[in-house]
Nucleic acid binder design. Structure first.
Lengths: 230, 230
DNA sequence: ACCTGAACACCGTTCAAGT
DNA sequence: ACCTGAACACCGTTCAAGT
């Protein structure tokens, strides 16, 4: 009996869940740009067209992958402090995104929100409302948070992969961009406990998150409404 | 003389600038996902390989397109009020992104910052420093702003294209996502001057922007440093 | 009725043949 | 030396032929 035949004999029948889980694992391993229907089929030991039984097309596959990652986010903790509940959940979402580096890009590329994302956003809106924010304020707060609600860093570039973080600063670059050079050197002096060239991504994320949450709480306390400007 | 020959006779020689400008115009017209080297070459009436004389590969083409859009952003206005200078420039960047709907996605997909982006960020850092923010605070402020510095809305989905904005609310969806339904209905009552189902993207953008800028100003006034938490 | 291999209409890019 | 058409190694997806 050849290896091929043995594999065929003990093959578990495909289903949507197995397809999606395999896609997530494969994207983690080889990157989202290398994930193709053909490559995924090969990994599952089936002919490419077999995937189309469980997924209408590649877009639907990506939808399912996005929902799988969002499904990894912790449910909201019970507690009286809405800022704490929101903060903890967003940090959980951030950890999910860090486990799957392709996920942020895939979620963002969906043309509309998937069911799991809608459920997540609905739950988040409920936490704000339960914390005493008006429907009006909650609406604008949700928009202001945007993708940060799902743990997106919203940075322009991945600083850990940046050239600035590897080795000593380039004098030519420092001359061309003096203010950026100043910020980079300031960060490097910043205690020295940071692993890369000086940017602690977790600190930057929490800095922005807390600034926003504190801003929201101030508006709530002041009874802000959209008829007045912030 | 055929049309083909006439076109060939009066052909302007290609150069990098003409290639990039044509790519921007073409992406505006047919969308970034339809922009291929082959399609661009056809538009310029040259053989596909001719493009590779002026651009190393497609990634470099996209780099150039990103820089072309960033180059459309107004230079910083002179003025004593740093919040005003930053605000006006970011709103100019936002208008540039709205003129080229593909640009945000392309800029985000660059693996590192392009020269025009570096120059822009350097200039922005200079405005913060000139406004009296410490190098330490400026560093964290730049991270907290992230892609918003370049006018990115940072929303999860384009609300104007959302199904929620077209027609009356779906009762089934409202039952599944009650808090989201509440926010949508609140927005719809919100004066009634908004063009779509209730979300004024410009208002939401400025709300978040001003919240952040005001937060930064408060930290500056308080003499915040990263050794203390916000 | 079901499955699936070949085919279609594309990609970005390499490369060698032609001028 | 330069230009360029054909070719390569891929895509996602259609479709018809085979069982």
């Amino acid at each position: 009996m050849t290896r091929q035949e043995a594999t065929h004999a003990q093959r578990i029948p495909l289903n949507r869940d197995r397809v999606l889980r395999a896609a997530v694992v494969l994207a983690d391993a080889i990157g989202i740009e290398a994930l193709s229907m053909r490559r995924l089929a090969q990994e599952l030991d089936v002919v490419p067209m077999a995937l189309y039984k469980h997924v209408a097309n590649k877009e639907e596959l990506l939808d399912g992958m996005a929902d799988a990652v969002v499904g990894e986010v912790d449910p909201p903790a019970a507690g009286p402090d809405w800022q704490r509940v929101v903060r903890d959940r967003i940090l959980s979402a951030r950890r999910a995104l860090l486990r799957h580096p392709w996920a942020a890009r895939v979620i963002e590329s969906r043309t509309g929100p998937t069911p799991a994302v809608l459920a997540y956003l609905d739950s988040m809106a409920g936490t704000f409302r339960g914390g005493g924010l008006s429907a009006d304020l909650t609406h604008h707060v949700m928009h202001a948070m945007g993708s940060r609600l799902l743990g997106f860093s919203q940075e322009l570039f991945d600083t850990s992969a940046s050239a600035a973080s590897a080795g000593p600063p380039d004098p030519a670059l420092a001359a061309a961009y003096p203010h950026i050079a100043e910020l980079a050197s300031t960060a490097a002096h910043d205690g020295g406990t940071t692993p890369n060239g000086g940017c602690d991504d977790q600190f930057e994320f929490e800095f922005a998150l807390d600034l926003l949450l504190n801003g929201f709480e101030t508006l709530r306390r002041e009874g802000w409404t959209s008829t007045r400007t912030p």
